[in-house]
Design a protein around this nucleic acid. Structure first.
Lengths: 142, 142
DNA sequence: GTATATAGTTGATTTTATCAACCAATGGGG
DNA sequence: CCCCATTGGTTGATAAAATCAACTATATAC
């Protein structure tokens, strides 16, 4: 296998991952897509997360993010409350329902991870992640 | 680093790759997007490539592929000629212009590959590809 | 206090993607 | 040979996703 296949390998893996996770939650029924899921993760990870944090992390248009947040609000997965210090901002956080979905999402992802790693030992996995991260820093610092 | 980061790592890498390749050809100016590029690769790889081959390999709607092919024809990157044996089919192939773009694309991808692999030795790369392929077969056979 | 930058919302538009109907050609079974 | 289900491809209509520009309100720098 040559370097030439690097891209194909990468994309195939990423795509399969997406599809599998998507299927394991009932994302379609919920009317939720990959970007919604990504937003939920960002909200979960980011302390005092605002719309703008999501814009910066996803590199999407802020109009798109605004509408996406509206949808998550309407689905009652998240709620927003005004920032005390800066009245322009709204802090995003999970509702009970959203929290539950997030747990489900984490579980789904972990079981996909476990599936992916079948037949691989820890050193291979570590090696893989280390190499991938080297590649990321190679590509971002140029 | 835990398994939990597998997905994030993968997606970050794939995304950076896409952006970098895209920038190195003048894809925007040409009015070409990632799916166009993927089609070109498929046409290049597939002997006697038809629209349906692209549909099968990309898993996209055939209407979308039909329109995409129309665009590539209008850009004079590919040409289609009727199949002798099956009059329903059109065989897709590259024009001179398309051939040139393909070369440019290959060059761009190779230089991205080289960039990605900086500071990694061949055994690490082999290991990476091997692990990735194990993951792909894990995920596809379930 | 005025000017400039930031956070967020909204309307209009473009780009992608999907669905359904359709035509022409193929191929198999009676 | 004819009927009919299947296949390859095209098109129109629509839905979903993404982008652009304008606008409000607040915050910050000078």
């Amino acid at each position: 296998m040559t370097q030439q296949n690097l891209a194909a390998t990468l994309f195939a893996l990423a795509q399969s991952y997406r599809v599998t996770v998507r299927n394991s939650i009932n994302a379609n029924e919920l009317g939720i897509n990959a970007l919604h899921v990504r937003c939920l993760h960002i909200i979960a990870q980011t302390p005092h997360c605002t719309a703008n944090d999501i814009v910066l992390q996803t590199q999407r248009d802020k109009a798109q993010i605004a509408r996406l947040i509206k949808e998550l609000l309407k689905l009652d997965l998240i709620s927003k409350c005004p920032d005390e210090n800066d009245k322009r901002c709204f802090i995003l956080s999970f509702t009970q329902t959203g929290e539950q979905l997030l747990q489900k999402l984490h579980a789904a992802e972990q079981s996909v991870d476990a599936l992916l790693c079948q037949g691989l030992d820890q050193s291979q996995i570590d090696n893989f992640l280390h190499t991938a991260n080297t590649m990321i820093s190679n590509i971002n610092h140029e």
